[in-house]
């Protein structure tokens, strides 16, 4: 594995109203790694992502990207390295056409229009929606919207791709396409999801969070076959690893 891309050091975060969302979380993600972050509802996954992106700032602890601690001064530079795809693509697509949306990030970073066009074309081609570039985002299907949202982040050429529930509300074919797409990316990836089968297919490492703390961090296959651990964290073994629903035959892993 390469260099340490992302270092999370003793993060602690409390929401107004004294709700402690993140308690003493530390981990390191190396370059090129793909990491799944799983946990029950309210475990703190989305808060953790917002802390990594600098949308929220921790009460104590720090987030380091390429050994630089995130603070308000370097936020703009660091966000160029981290691309986040939101859970709901409607929150991310707000321009009048897919092209304009994908071009939004590169233009804000002051790239000239030729480079912007190159990046937009490349990002759209990567997610396979070049033909939709002139369409209004609101007229797209759920899967197309998700692809457009991913393209809008890819056009900034981030080094780390962060995704919050990327397969939610996708039909099976669109979900499969997305998994194939994610596996093609060479980026460092952090994916939070309840779709444990998708985590199994896309992430080699998995971190399990419960009540704002890390309860397990290791190889995805080992974690996702640990029935007791998953049950304890409000999760269950992925469907693809469960016994056959018809004959009850045990799956071989």
């Amino acid at each position: 594995m390469g260099n340490n891309k992302l270092i999370i050091k003793k993060l602690h975060f409390t929401y107004p109203g004294e709700h402690i969302a993140i308690k003493d979380i530390s981990f390191v993600i190396s370059e090129g790694e793909s990491v799944g972050i799983i946990g029950a509802n309210g475990a703190g996954k989305s808060t953790l992502l917002m802390l990594i992106m600098g949308i929220l700032f921790p009460n104590t602890g720090e987030v380091l990207v390429d050994n630089r601690s995130i603070n308000k001064k370097n936020l703009s530079k660091i966000r160029q390295q981290l691309g986040m795809v939101f859970q709901n693509p409607d929150d991310q697509l707000f321009m009048t056409s897919v092209y304009e949306d994908v071009a939004f990030g590169p233009r804000n970073y002051g790239l000239d229009e030729v480079e912007v066009e190159n990046r937009v074309e490349k990002a759209l081609a990567m997610v396979g929606i070049s033909h939709l570039k002139d369409r209004s985002p609101f007229k797209l299907s759920g899967g197309e919207k998700r692809s457009a949202a991913i393209a809008s982040v890819l056009s900034m050429e981030p080094e780390v791709l962060i995704m919050d529930e990327p397969t939610s509300a996708l039909d099976p074919k669109s979900r499969r396409k997305l998994i194939q797409l994610l596996n093609r990316f060479k980026h460092t990836k952090i994916i939070t999801s309840h779709d444990l089968d998708m985590v199994l297919d896309t992430c080699k490492r998995t971190i399990v969070i419960k009540g704002g703390r890390i309860v397990a961090d290791g190889n995805t296959k080992e974690i996702l076959t640990n029935d007791e651990l998953l049950d304890n964290c409000g999760l269950e073994v992925p469907l693809s690893l469960q016994n056959c629903p018809v004959c009850g035959t045990k799956k071989e892993i």
């Binding site: 949308i55 966000r79 709901n88 991310q92 707000f94 939004f104 990030g105 804000n108 970073y109």
Partner: peptide
């Protein structure tokens, strides 16, 4: 707020640059 956050994450600094 979420839309604004997503704009900020993509480098929005208070000016629409439409190219």
């Amino acid at each position: 707020q979420r839309v604004y956050q997503s704009m900020n994450l993509r480098g929005f600094r208070g000016e629409y640059i439409n190219g």
